[in-house]
């Protein structure tokens, strides 16, 4: 997924770099509030962990293998802000030290694999664990969050590609192909993320950021019987709103402001389903006349709106699963 130089036009590269810088800036401030003077060593070790985990290859389908992106995993284990920092540092190191990912494409890479992945994963995860707070919900939430985050990041890539890709491929084909392959990769990502989170939960539940507030209350044994002293607070209750606002702003920037540049680039948007290659046809089979399939032109929906709708659908799916889990829990208790 590491985008090299020359893949996007200079305008998109610069636009994405601005988004990335802003996102990392916010993450720096918030992570420091959470970890204070532990930020540097903790985030550094977690970044090394993500780098290592990205080397875990798993077979996807015949002949192809995917590797873990780790953005969702990091968001659930150490919180979304620290996760963005860690993934950004991993990408910077990969770009400058390992020549993996173009230097001019760093903004795109950090935006997609760091900010979008962590934001989507954390948003979905919070929605699910907000309605049902127990271990099963956390593991299920991790699975769905990671699963959703990968194709959404791939779709964000397709949106950027539609705005300022340098190749004359129909934007719908890109969206369908990227989305399709990445749903498969997402299943692997979701599976590994969920099992990883569950195995950490089993040994050191206190280390899982997404499981904060699961601790049992302290009990005092007094003459009159047992007495609960401190009800566990919900530490995430406050940060969630600014986070969602931030994620919303990032999405808006991506969808709205950056697509402003699109008018200057005739490549992606204007060329529509006249002469599709075979992947485009495959896309047609998959999504047919569905308005979003071609990412914005068949139904006359502008790209930005299509992106926003996609995000909303994703959130709705997450919410639905959350509710289902909560109902099941109510039945069992």
């Amino acid at each position: 997924m590491h985008v090299p130089d020359g893949f996007f036009t200079a305008t998109v590269s610069i636009g994405a770099a601005v988004v990335a810088a802003a996102g990392v800036g916010v993450a720096l401030r918030r992570a420091k509030q959470e970890l204070d003077d532990r930020t540097a060593p903790m985030a550094g070790l977690v970044a090394a962990f993500i780098f290592a985990v990205q080397m875990l290859n798993f077979p996807v389908a015949a002949g192809t293998s995917g590797h873990l992106l780790g953005g969702a995993l990091a968001a659930i284990l150490v919180g979304p802000y620290t996760a963005v920092l860690c993934v950004a540092v991993v990408l910077l190191v990969q770009g400058f030290f390992f020549a993996d990912g173009g230097l001019t494409a760093l903004g795109v890479n950090i935006t997609l694999m760091g900010i979008v992945t962590a934001a989507v994963a954390w948003g979905v995860f919070r929605l699910i664990t907000r309605v049902a707070r127990n271990r099963a919900a956390i593991v299920a939430g991790s699975f769905v969050a990671a699963l959703v985050s990968v194709p959404v990041a791939a779709l964000a890539f397709a949106v950027l590609f539609a705005i300022g890709g340098t190749a004359p491929i129909d934007a719908g084909s890109v969206a369908a192909a990227m989305g399709g392959v990445h749903v498969l990769i997402g299943i692997g990502e979701g599976l590994i993320t969920a099992v990883t989170v569950s195995s950490v939960l089993a040994v050191r539940p206190d280390l899982v950021y997404g499981a904060r507030g699961l601790a049992k209350p302290l009990v005092l044994r007094t003459a009159t019987g047992e007495q609960v002293v401190t009800a566990p607070e919900e530490p995430q209750a406050k940060p969630i709103r600014p986070f969602l606002v931030g994620a919303g702003i990032v999405s808006l920037l991506l969808a709205g402001v950056v697509s402003f540049f699109a008018s200057g680039s005739p490549d992606g948007l204007e060329r529509v389903a006249e002469d599709k290659g075979f992947l485009g046809q495959a896309g047609d089979h998959l999504f047919g006349g569905f308005a979003l399939a071609d990412y914005g032109d068949v139904g006359g929906i502008p790209v930005g709106v299509a992106g926003v709708i996609g995000v909303l659908i994703t959130l709705a799916v997450g919410l639905g699963i959350g509710y289902a889990l909560r109902r099941r829990r109510k039945v069992t208790t």
Partner: peptide, 12 residues
């Protein structure tokens, strides 16, 4: 802070 995180990452 980013430089420090990268420093620790490379060290470990």
């Amino acid at each position: 802070l980013l430089v420090q995180i990268a420093t620790f990452m490379l060290r470990y």
